[in-house]
Design a protein around this nucleic acid. Structure first.
Length: 969
DNA sequence: GAGCACTGC
């Protein structure tokens, strides 16, 4: 048995001495996902609606529907508000309260509400407002994009007048009572840390700062650097940029820093932020900018040396996101050409050394974290304490563990399991001194089942509720099925565990006295949201992870054991407000075998998009750049990505960008989606194609609330308008939303509610569409930035017309034969409108994402006609096969066809290819006004062919065969 | 019959 974990057990965690003056930095400023600030009161504000419009409680909801409602509206009223009323009534009578949070539940408040903004003195404020107004008027004339570029390219030239101004401002601020108040209450930063840190940064080109979440490094380090420059009268030479992994943390940290500096965020101040489609930029010199990592990677395209930045601070590098790993590699190279650039890496303590080594053993400095101590318990402690005995399962014959487990276990995990099984007897013996035989037997039984034992969690929750002090309980589970399972169990548990499952904004509120809040969450609660009154954490021990199986060329998602870093992060969630307790539901042996960290994202993900980025950033040959990363991806994964890009015609044989590749690399989407966007523009069905592209690259706007699955399916089916297409369902939903929005806020809310749509997601999709349109316009593919421009939407049509035109573009997805479940190859995901469909017009579907979870699922698919496949599916060839003419797409989708038609199709397709290639080589919009032009003629002919073909029986072809061996999936 | 989490001038 490996050693070590036994010592961790029960150890006082955190090592913190909160409140111990000198060493305290700032315990509140969680650098990661500072999260949403909770409302101090438990009750919602009156009439305040949340997200999809489930609010309007209080005034209206008093037992009877408002008198003006009629018929169906009355039913709706009871459906919507009845549930809320019921839960309010129940809340008064029960002791325990469960609420849950997954992604997809919109947070109750926007991040903009974070942070306090200190007030300024009146005259200064007035002056500043005038200045701001002047500036806003000026800026209003400049397009946002140009403004950002102007911001990016400004040089860091010393401005003595600015230096003096900044310094005197700083000194004046030091006398401002409001600022001093903030300084005392918020920063409390010990001077010696600031000095040590600043001199270390001055002396070295790269510094690693390690410290746990909550030690305040994110908010403080940037300010130390800036204030040092200002005090030395060199403020104009300092421009700190700090990257964050999440949008929400970039905003909340910037807001917080501004508040600490007694300023507001952005526009000419010392602190601002920039995330996709949203920015409040600080003044050009003498400032700190918080941005997402992706933003810096985009900046590099225009300014490969980051010449306007004096200090680059990379936060949360230990999370090992794809983008942060790439940026690290870029920056390491950049240091050769930018001798004056200072780089600061901020990491959790566990592997700070790794980053130091990567940067030539650069100096490290540790910032102690100050959270409350958290006691940790392992599975054996929990089982012993609760005297828990697993229910007898129906005793199936015991298969070898690897068989019972996920049938696609990865080889590394296989080895770990073998070690676990081998060490078990020894571990069990070592437990005998401290634990009862019953406990050891229970542990063995728990081990037989790979699933998380929810009965155990219920028992543990009961124990905490009945025996422990007040404080919220946070339960980490890997996914939806566990969460809803646990919720069901709690719902049906006898008092005092009777629960209700209310709206998710109550996740963030403190419950009234005598009520216990229980939050069940996925790993979203590790970093992205913060429930700040948590005292007890139950760590289910599993986490869902995606991987990329290069052998079978498929993405996978499965629950895996957590890493030590996850476990530590989960534990930390218990010590934010008081000393806490954390129960890990895995035994000591398992704990000793946990990985330190999850596999870095770069090793778990397909690399196509990254390869294009490497090319457009001119970082050298793809493989040699990737080998320079901290933990390079496998050669096989690199090879696979390059092959795909060549197939897509984005890279040529010598791995250089083709004209198409160049455009794809510039669009902020995956290459497949990018191609769809370009073709959508050229074929004049821009608006719907952009909706689809935005949705595929961000997220689908549909939500499925717990218990409402059937109804949600039904509503989606209606929105699909029998198109047999998930893509067009989203287009219909989006149009419906736009229409509802035009009719007012109430209509919008109602439309979203009725159709299970997230208004926040739709708004984001709307913004992204605008961004895509701007790209297309800048590249010359469309005449106008307006994506509704009629010349770009000649083939968009509505309903009928749309279903075929949008299909054209969707064909840049992968095609697949319609299988039935019995075929066992792939399944249409149950969320798809095609899941239950039995009557297809055609035998082919195209899909965007295929992933292996419990089976291999196609997540979004659209039925396509053979003509669509022939014109947009790939290379076509005509052959004589057994005395019959056939026409084939990429040599594997083969149709039987009269020779005349086959040749007609082939010629037309060739013309289309020439036209598209020419347009991409020299972007310009198709001139639809000149109907006689050859462009128009070719495209119109194809569209006519596709749209007029009403039923398969009228088609001049017959499907001949499908060559299974050549299926490239 | 099923939904870890992020991100992009």
């Amino acid at each position: 048995m490996s050693s070590g974990y036994g010592n961790r057990r029960g150890r006082r965690g955190g090592g913190g001495r909160f409140g111990d003056g000198e060493d305290v930095w700032d315990r509140c400023a969680g650098p990661s996902g500072g999260g949403y600030q909770s409302n101090p009161g438990w009750e919602s504000r009156e009439g305040q609606a949340r997200g999809g419009g489930r609010g309007a409680r209080g005034g209206g909801a008093r037992g009877k529907h408002p008198p003006h409602l009629k018929g169906r509206e009355i039913g709706l009223w009871y459906a919507k508000w009845g549930g809320i009323k019921r839960s309010e009534a129940e809340r008064k009578s029960v002791r325990t309260y469960v609420t849950s949070y997954f992604d997809g539940d919109d947070p109750p408040e926007g991040p903009q509400k974070m942070g306090k903004v200190a007030e300024m003195e009146p005259d200064k404020k007035q002056k500043q407002e005038q200045e701001e107004e002047k500036e806003v008027k000026m800026k209003a004339k400049v397009e946002p994009r140009e403004r950002d570029l102007e911001y990016l390219f400004q040089d860091l030239v010393r401005k003595p007048a600015l230096d003096v101004e900044l310094k005197s401002d700083f000194q004046a601020k030091a006398e401002n009572p409001k600022y001093l108040e903030m300084l005392v209450s918020e920063r409390m930063s010990p001077v010696h840390y600031a000095q040590r840190l600043v001199s270390l940064v001055q002396a070295s080109r790269v510094v690693v700062i390690s410290g746990e979440t909550g030690c305040g490094k994110t908010t403080q380090v940037t300010q130390f650097i800036l204030d040092d420059y200002i005090q030395r009268g060199a403020g104009s030479l300092c421009r700190v940029v700090c990257t964050q992994p999440r949008r929400i943390s970039a905003i909340s940290v910037a807001e917080r820093v501004a508040a600490e500096r007694a300023e507001s965020v952005g526009e000419g101040r010392s602190c601002g932020y920039q995330i996709r489609l949203q920015s409040r930029l600080p003044r050009k010199q003498g400032s700190v900018l918080y941005c997402t990592t992706g933003i810096i990677l985009q900046w590099l395209r225009s300014d490969p040396c980051l010449s306007s930045i004096s200090h680059l601070v990379l936060d949360e590098v230990h999370e090992r996101s794809l983008q942060s790993d790439v940026l690290l590699a870029v920056v390491r190279d950049l240091l050769h050409s930018r001798e004056d650039l200072k780089v600061v890496l901020m990491s959790a303590t566990l592997n700070a050394e790794k980053f130091s080594k990567y940067f030539d053993n650069c100096p490290m400095i540790h910032i102690p974290g100050y959270t409350y101590p958290v006691e940790e318990y392992l599975l054996e402690d929990v089982v012993e304490m609760l005297r828990f005995r697993p229910q007898h399962q129906d005793r199936r014959p015991r298969f070898p563990r690897s068989f019972l487990q996920n049938q696609w276990t990865r080889p590394e995990k296989e080895a770990q399991e073998a070690e676990y099984r081998q060490s078990w007897p020894c571990f069990a013996r070592s437990l005998r001194d401290r634990f009862s035989d019953d406990t050891i037997e229970a542990l063995e039984r728990l081990d037989e089942d790979d699933k998380i034992n929810l009965d155990l969690i219920v028992a543990l929750i009961r124990h905490i509720v009945m025996n422990e002090d007040d404080g919220a309980i946070l339960v980490f589970l890997p996914g939806w099925d566990n969460i809803s399972g646990l919720n069901d169990l709690l719902m049906h548990a006898p008092d005092p565990c009777r629960v209700t499952m209310p709206l998710s904004d109550q996740v963030f509120k403190r419950p009234p006295a005598g009520v216990r809040k229980i939050v069940i969450a996925t790993n979203i609660a590790e970093t992205s949201i913060t429930v700040d009154d948590v005292v007890y954490v139950i760590d289910g021990g599993k986490i869902k992870e995606t991987h990329f199986d290069t052998q079978n060329n498929i993405s996978t998602m499965a629950a895996e054991w957590v890493s030590l870093a996850n476990a530590k992060q989960r534990k930390g969630r218990a010590g934010r407000v008081s000393p806490g307790k954390c129960y890990h539901l895995y035994n000591g042996l398992r704990a000793s075998l946990l990985d330190n960290y999850q596999l870095p994202e770069i090793q778990r993900t397909p690399l196509e998009e990254l390869c294009l980025q490497i090319k457009i950033l001119k970082l050298g040959p793809i493989a040699s750049f990737l080998r320079k990363t901290l933990d390079p991806p496998s050669e096989k994964a690199i090879e696979l990505a390059i092959t795909h890009l060549k197939d897509l015609n984005a890279l040529d044989r010598s791995e250089e960008l083709t004209p198409l590749g160049f455009h794809l690399a510039r669009l902020p989407v995956e290459p497949h989606i990018g191609k769809m966007i370009l073709f959508g523009a050229l074929l004049a069905c821009l608006d719907p194609v952009l909706t689809i592209a935005a949705s595929l690259s961000f997220k689908d706007p549909f939500c499925i609330p717990l218990g409402k699955e059937k109804l949600a399916d039904h509503r989606r089916k209606i929105l699909s308008k029998n198109s047999k297409s998930d893509h067009l369902t989203i287009v219909n939903a989006f149009w419906g939303w736009e229409d509802a929005k035009r009719r007012g806020y109430k209509c919008e809310r109602e439309f979203c509610w009725d159709n299970f749509l997230s208004a926040n997601t739709l708004q984001m999709l709307h913004n992204m569409k605008g961004q895509f349109a701007e790209h297309l316009w800048a590249a010359g593919f469309v005449r106008s930035k307006d994506l509704k421009d009629s010349s770009a939407n000649i083939n968009s049509g509505d309903s009928q017309g749309l279903s075929t035109t949008a299909e054209i573009c969707v064909c840049h997805h992968r095609p697949v034969k319609v299988y039935t479940k019995a075929d066992g190859k792939v399944c249409i995901h149950p969320k798809s409108v095609n899941a239950e469909e039995t009557q297809f017009h055609y035998t082919w579907l195209i899909y965007h994402l295929k992933m292996r979870t419990s089976s291999i699922f196609l997540y979004d698919c659209t039925e396509v006609s053979p003509f669509s496949l022939l014109f947009f599916g790939g290379d076509i060839s005509i052959q004589k096969d057994q005395e019959q003419e056939t026409i084939a797409v990429d040599e594997w989708i083969v149709f039987q066809s009269p020779a005349r038609i086959a040749h007609l199709v082939k010629n037309l397709k060739r013309e289309l290819d020439v036209l598209l290639e020419e347009k991409i080589r020299q972007p310009r919009p198709v001139d639809w006004d000149d109907r006689g032009s050859s462009d128009c003629a070719v495209i119109s002919a194809i569209i006519d062919l596709i749209t007029t073909q009403e039923s398969p029986s009228e088609a001049p072809w017959q499907e001949r065969s499908w060559k299974a061996g050549q299926h490239w999936d």
